[in-house]
Structures are given as C-alpha cells and as structure tokens.
Design a protein around this nucleic acid. Structure first.
Length: 462
RNA sequence: GGCGUCGUACCCAAGUGGUCUAAGGGAGCAGUUUGCAAAACUGUCAUUCAUCGGUUCGAAUCCGAUCGACGCCUCCA
C-alpha cells in the first residue's frame, strides 16, 4: 500500500516517494527560544513526531533535523528587557523545550542546529544570492531578496502579491527597499539591538529569519530533500520565502513535500502568545494531564483540521486510554507462553491503510477500537486462539510505537502491596468489614483496587 | 480587497459520488459481572450530514446561493 500525503504545494494528496529509496530527509521548523512553547506549538511537534514514527514504521530510515531559532526580533528584545545575554536567554528556553519534548515522548531529532552557530553558512548563501542578482544591499547595509528576480514566487501560497493588501508598516519602515514586499536576508544592526550583532561583508547585523532555515536545512539535508514541515502559519511568508531564496541560491529544486499542521484553538480562537490564551505543558501537567493524555487529545483529530482544546478533554483521554490498557492487560493474562505463533488481526492492515492516507489518525483509532471490541466479544465467549492473543499484543505494541499513548506500567510501592495482601487475606475469610476498611485506606493513599476473578487489580487514582 | 479552511448526534470526531437506513471515542441509559463497590465487558444511542436550490439513475460527498465559525495577507507552530 502506498503512502499518500497532502502536499501544501499541490493542495492535494499525492503519493509519497522519497528522493533516495528507503531514506527520508525531514526538516521540521523548530521553536524560537524566547519564551516557553505552548501546546499549540506542541500540536505541530506531535504531528511531526507521528509523521516520523510512521515513516520509521514503514521501514524508512529517517534523518530528521529541527532548527532552534535563537536570534530574531523577539529573542533580542527579550534578552535586552531581561538584562541578560541572548545566549543565557536562549539556552534557558532551549533546555526547557528539550525537557518538554522529552516529557511528551517526542522522539528526538538527529540534529538540532542553532541559528547562531550557522551565521557563516547564512552569509555565504546571501553572497551567492547577491552574485546571482537575487539580492541587493540598501543604504543602511541591510540585504534584501529581490522578489522581481524570482518568477515562481507564490507557488506554495498560491498568492498573487499584487492583490495583497499592503500594510502600513511595510510602507513606512522599509522605504529603502526596491519593492515593499522584498524580504530581509540580512538586517543591519540598529540601536535597539544593543550588543547583539555579527560581523558580515555588509557590516554589523544579523540574519533574517527565513535564511536561517534555508541555510541549515541545506547544510544538513542537501540542496534538495524530501519533507519540510511546520504549522500553517509558516506557509506564508516563511516557507514561501525559503523556497524563493533556496531555489535561487542553489538553482535546484528545494523540497518535494510540504506538510503543515492546523492550529490548535482555544474557545474557538487561535492560541497565541499575543492573545495570552494559551497553556504551557507545565500548566497542563499541573491540571493533572499526563503526557499520554496530551498526546491522545492532540492526535485524536486529524492534523489538518482545527482542534479546539479544552481542559475537559483530559477525562475523555483518560477513560479512552484506560480502555486500551485494560484490554492489553486482559490479553496479557490470557497469554500462553508456550504458544509462539502470532496471528496479526486483519484490522491491522486497515489501520495502516488509514495512516497511509495522509495520517488519518481518527480513522486509525476507530479501526483500532472496533478491533478491541470484536476481540473482547471473542474473549467473552472464550472463542479465541492463543496465536490471536499474541497477534493482539503485537498489534497493541505497534499501535503504541506509532502513537505513544500507553503509559508505562505503574510500579506499586511495597506498603501498598502489603495492604493489598492483607486485604486479600481478610477477603478469603469473608471478613468484609476489614476488607472494606483496607480498601478505603488504599483509596486514601491514592490507589484504587478492583477485585477480579484473577485477583485484585490496582491502579493509582490519578 | 485577495487567498483559503470549516459547519456531521449531548460533546469530540472520521467519512468527500453507490458497500452510508453515516466509523470511532466520551457522556447518558439498560444489562453482564461482583460479598458490596469500583473498574471492566456487552448492548443501546443521527433515515440524517448548517439552510435552500441544482447536477446525477444515485449526494453528507459535486455545483450555486444564503447563514454561521475560523485562518493567512511580512517574521506567531
């Protein structure tokens, strides 16, 4: 079964074929480390995580690069207001980002290049653009990309610049540009930048935002690579500009597949720093969310549809995940270790097909849950083969390799374990009073005990 | 003004010409199980897809209009 992805540049689903068979080169736009990332940002990162896990599942060797933007207007401004160096600022938030990534079970990228470590590459790229006539220096020693020199501008966005509303800021601020819509490759230092600048052939300054991704993606993945991802807000102007400058600099095609995830909304509005209507990962954790619950909530909607986030979704995620783990537990209890054969269920193929179709996670979940139900029926009737138990457990493992929403088994503290044993003794003697007392005590300690034919089952109350 | 997305049950959410008298999850309800309980399991839960027209043998799916929500249009994932 072939894999199809929605490619923003064609605005339709197309078959995925990597440039080099068996290998996928993936670039995902990383965070600007001027502040804590919010779950809107993480929706994109979790979508990218799923994409990568799926490609790995399909047998591709994936080389994944995610940039860290550690210089731009916001980082500079913030460092200056906080009276710390830009490095101190960005290190702090980079570290925080890495912790969030890890706590959300997002697989790490192979490389996390920082913009400030690649100023030389950016300068070289700008020089190449200048030599080819795609860039020009202005009086204040900034360098701009000349949109008129690049015919195919607007391919990704399907935008006609002449029809766009030109906002006042462009007209006022950037009067020295040849065309108000030309974008900055290199920004000359100004007084607001303080001590934050780099030397360049055009004098002191710093790189423009777009050049950073072009320079770093090309350095690590080559002039022409497979997939470039980000949130929909990156489509214009960021990715559009990246295409323009990359193609102009290398005279080669840049990226084959552009994939963008939709916004996470809150109460129907875009979640953003500016509006202040956002949750950080740490906020959600203090609200009681686990990593798995956050992942489930974000993956439960298709990546290209808007998703309205609310704290209420925690309970839904919790119950749903519990359903999976209980079922997994049921299979584990039935497993016969002498049976080695594993028959993977038919639904597995449908499940993969759903993901092959542009990562249709809701559909994949639906197939998975449908399968759980039909298995449960078989188990209720005792009409199953042990190879099906093994196959079922394998399916669940594969499911979790892709989604990472099944929590690790809880370890039960010794004192809790002792209490459970004590209660079992009481129950054997039919001393219900004592048994209930201990059950209450366990509840107070935060543990739920459930009696089943195969003995008591314990889980933390959460 | 330009470009674009979306409107499916109480809530979330797939499906984009026939297998749809529309998946799946949550909530609700009923039952099974249980010393009791909790959990789990099972069943049930939209003749209908914002509205109105049209195309078609056939539409949630295509076209048009209307209403409503949202996004992008120079540095927000």
């Amino acid at each position: 079964m072939s894999t199809r992805f929605y490619n923003t540049i064609n605005r339709k689903k197309v078959e995925f074929e990597p440039i080099t068979p068996g290998t996928v080169k993936l670039y995902t736009c990383g965070p600007t480390v001027y502040d804590t990332a919010h779950i809107g940002n993480f929706r994109t990162f979790i979508f990218e995580d799923l994409l990568k896990r799926f490609l790995v599942f399909k047998g591709y060797e994936v080389y994944h690069v995610m940039n860290i933007t550690d210089v731009d207007d916001k980082t500079i401004k913030r460092a200056i207001t906080e009276e710390i160096t830009i490095n101190e600022l960005t290190l702090k938030y980079t570290e925080e980002f890495m912790n969030d990534i890890k706590s959300l079970k997002i697989l790490p990228a192979d490389k996390y290049p920082r913009a400030t470590d690649h100023i030389d590459e950016m300068i070289k790229m700008i020089q190449a653009l200048e030599e080819n006539g795609y860039a020009y220096e202005t009086e204040d020693h900034s360098v701009y990309f000349r949109l008129d020199a690049y015919d195919s501008y607007g391919q990704l966005t399907q935008i006609d610049l002449t029809q766009q509303r030109v906002n006042e800021r462009i007209i006022n601020d950037e009067y020295s540009k040849d065309n108000p819509q030309d974008f900055a490759l290199w920004k000359a230092r100004d007084d607001d930048d303080g001590k934050i600048y780099w030397e360049s052939p055009w004098g002191r300054g710093r790189p423009g935002w777009h050049i950073e991704c072009s320079a770093m993606s090309i350095k690590y993945l080559g002039n022409h690579f497979d997939i470039h991802c980000g949130g929909v807000d990156n489509i214009f102007p960021h990715h559009e500009n990246e295409i323009a400058q990359s193609v102009s600099a290398t005279q080669e095609p840049f990226v084959n597949y552009w994939m963008h995830s939709e916004y996470l909304q809150i109460h129907g509005d875009k979640m953003s720093k500016t509006l202040g209507n956002y949750y950080k990962i740490s906020d959600l954790i203090s609200e009681g969310f686990t990593a798995e619950e956050i992942r489930f909530t974000l993956l439960n909607a298709h990546y290209r549809s808007k998703l309205d986030f609310s704290l209420k979704q925690k309970q839904e995620a919790r119950t749903t995940i519990q359903r999976i783990t209980d079922f997994q537990q049921r299979l584990l209890e039935l497993k016969d270790s002498s049976e080695t054969e594993s028959s993977i269920p038919d639904e597995f193929e449908e499940f993969v097909a759903a993901l092959d179709d542009d990562l249709d996670t809701p559909k994949a979940f639906a197939i998975f849950f449908g399968w759980i139900r039909s298995m449960n029926k078989l188990l209720d009737r005792g009409e199953f083969k042990f190879s099906q138990i093994n196959g079922g457990l394998d399916f669940i493992d594969k499911f979790d390799d892709l989604f990472a929403i099944i929590p690790d088994a809880e370890s039960i503290p010794q004192n809790i374990y002792d209490l459970i044993k004590k209660r079992e003794k009481a129950r054997l003697k039919q001393d219900w009073k004592t048994a209930d007392k201990i059950r209450n005590q366990l509840y107070q300690e935060g543990w739920l005990v459930a009696d089943s034919p195969s003995g008591p089952k314990v889980r933390s109350k959460k």
